[in-house]
Design a protein around this nucleic acid. Structure first.
Length: 348
DNA sequence: AAATCGGGGTT
DNA sequence: AACCCAGATTT
């Protein structure tokens, strides 16, 4: 590297000042910043795990209006909580957040340190540092995807990281050394905001970077950090689309299922003991490293009535109720789009 | 350490 | 089409 990280850590006070000045001017007016509270910080952080800001915004507004505080959420019905999360993805988070609210509501007061927060459901190292620093001024440095990128570039790490976890381990000491202990919440948000707005993955705006004078990657930033490619798989999935008297047959996952917890989706053809039907659509859906090629088969209701009675996780949902039935986002769209086509071909 | 979990925006 | 996002949990 062209500049050792040591010179950066010696410049920590000046670095913090330049970053803070930039953040004060460029910070986005996000709802969890404008009316901050411990609860709103927690909700935003859980929703923002692996999920982009723009995606979270409408969910955050609906959620906090419906459940304004820990106690309100703690009293909520689990099915309602899961339905309110439908479409956000990583559905385990909904149950974890519900459990977190119950745990906090049972305490005399919420934890104030990262060590306290990390004990709660759904809270890992990142979220514990974020909540404790932003809501309570606890001096814990956050290391998310943005911060990894910013710090790897500042330090000039040109090697290929085996995983994001490996990169987090490497840059965490630098994150801690740079943290502004007097205003850790703002400092952490400024680091992430810098990654989101300036030190972007594909097109870093180094000419607008407030800390470029300490950066060892000037001119090569776009290629840092490098990660080993992950193996990717493709898998074919066959599902049944069954419509009967303005109702559609869905399979609902258990509330504690590792995937699609509490949500409903179109049932697998195999689960209905069917080989194939009339192919009505083929969609691709990427889930992490696997691309699922989903084929939707139109199946006459008569062929599945017995199975629907036998299998308790199968349920008929009226088309009018679909938007409120905690149906996985893509499946909700598929059914909505295909129902007209189906109605024409199966007489209703 | 590696695998898994959604959905969508960006490039 | 590939990559990655305010990561955590389980294996």
């Amino acid at each position: 590297m062209s500049r050792p990280a040591a010179s950066l850590t010696r410049s920590a006070p000046a670095f913090r000042k330049a970053l803070a000045r930039w953040f004060a001017r460029h910070r986005r007016p996000l709802p969890w910043r404008e009316a901050p509270s411990a609860y709103r910080t927690v909700v935003s952080e859980l929703m923002l795990q692996q999920t982009q800001v723009a995606t979270v915004l409408p969910y955050f507004e609906r959620w906090t209006q419906r459940w304004p505080g820990f106690a309100d959420l703690a009293r909520a019905d689990e099915a309602e909580v899961l339905a309110a999360w439908a479409g956000l993805g990583y559905y385990r988070r909904a149950r974890l957040l519900h459990g977190l609210a119950k745990a906090v509501a049972a305490l005399p007061a919420p934890p104030t340190t990262a060590e306290g927060w990390v004990e709660l459901p759904g809270v890992g190292p990142y979220t514990a540092a974020a909540v404790s620093s932003i809501a309570f001024g606890h001096p814990a440095a956050v290391v998310d995807g943005n911060v990894v990128r910013v710090l790897a570039r500042l330090a000039g790490h040109r090697r290929t990281f085996a995983s994001t976890a490996a990169a987090v381990r490497v840059v965490t000491p630098l994150a801690a050394a740079l943290l502004d202990p007097r205003r850790p919440g703002d400092h952490n948000q400024a680091m992430m905001e810098l990654g989101a707005l300036v030190c972007r993955k594909a097109s870093p705006a180094c000419d607008r970077c407030p800390v470029s004078r300490w950066c060892a990657s000037r001119g090569a930033a776009a290629s840092i950090p490098a990660f080993a490619p992950k193996p990717r798989r493709s898998e074919q999935v066959d599902r049944a689309l069954v419509v009967d008297r303005r109702r559609v047959l869905l399979r609902r996952h258990a509330k504690d299922s590792p995937r699609l917890a509490g949500l409903a989706e179109l049932p697998l053809l195999a689960s209905l003991r069917l080989k194939a039907g009339k192919l009505v659509a083929v969609r691709k859906r990427a889930i992490t490293t696997t691309t699922y090629v989903e084929r939707l088969h139109l199946v006459p209701a008569a062929k599945v009535r017995a199975a629907a009675r036998r299998q308790p996780d199968l349920e008929w949902v009226s088309l009018a109720d679909l938007p409120f039935a905690a149906v996985s986002g893509p499946h909700l769209r598929w059914v909505t789009e295909l129902v007209g086509k189906v109605a024409g071909e199966s007489k209703g």
